[in-house]
Design a protein around this nucleic acid. Sequence first.
DNA 1: ATATCGATTATCT
DNA 2: GATAATCGATATG
Length: 217
Amino acid sequence: MTLYTSLPLRPVRQLDRAFFGRSPRRVARELLGKVLVRDCGKLRLAARIVEVEAYLGENDPAAHAAAGNTARTAVLFGPPGYAYVYFIYGNHYCLNVSCEREGKAGSVLFRALEPLLGIEEMARARKVTLRSSRDLLQLTRGPGRLAEAFGITRTRDNGCDLTSQSSGLWIGDDGFPTKGIQVTPRIGISKAADQPLRYVLAGNAFVSGRKNPAARA
DNA sequence: ATATCGATTATCT
DNA sequence: GATAATCGATATG
């Protein structure tokens, strides 16, 4: 099994606000292959974005923004490029980036990453012992797992500017050539579950969910 | 004040 | 494949 399909990591240039100031579908598709970076002192965590979902805003029944602009969802209604972090199932944090523009909600949920830098630190944060290369899959596959690997919490990261390196959490482009993109329905939702708004790098081992969703019985 | 419900994961069988 | 764990946000009384 080849896990490191996207090494080596080349110099990373941060994405600007205009990148996020577009529709969630557009941003989701183009975020594939980009890099999520956490800078903490001289320590850097980095991982390639391999799976995301688009949430369309107030008119999307599956989106948190459907509840309107509340204390919880305020970031979604703010300017684009900011982190929306929510707590779910009593255990997990999930990371989104806001899209569209001020006053118009919309976001992209990060569902899976491929670890690039700081792998030891991610393993420690996840309480995973790295025995074989297969264990790398436990680090950042799934929205709750990737948040834990990056130490993302609501108090620490909700509302932080993902276009600014000085925020310590940001998104960049290292020139990785994105090959195939696969679009499927979103995972884990009950409303609007049929819409194809989940975007994955085809064939990437770090994508979450069942290996063969068609094999149902 | 209390009840309900998740954009999930780990841990069983 | 099935389910328990776990708690903040939200709705309702």
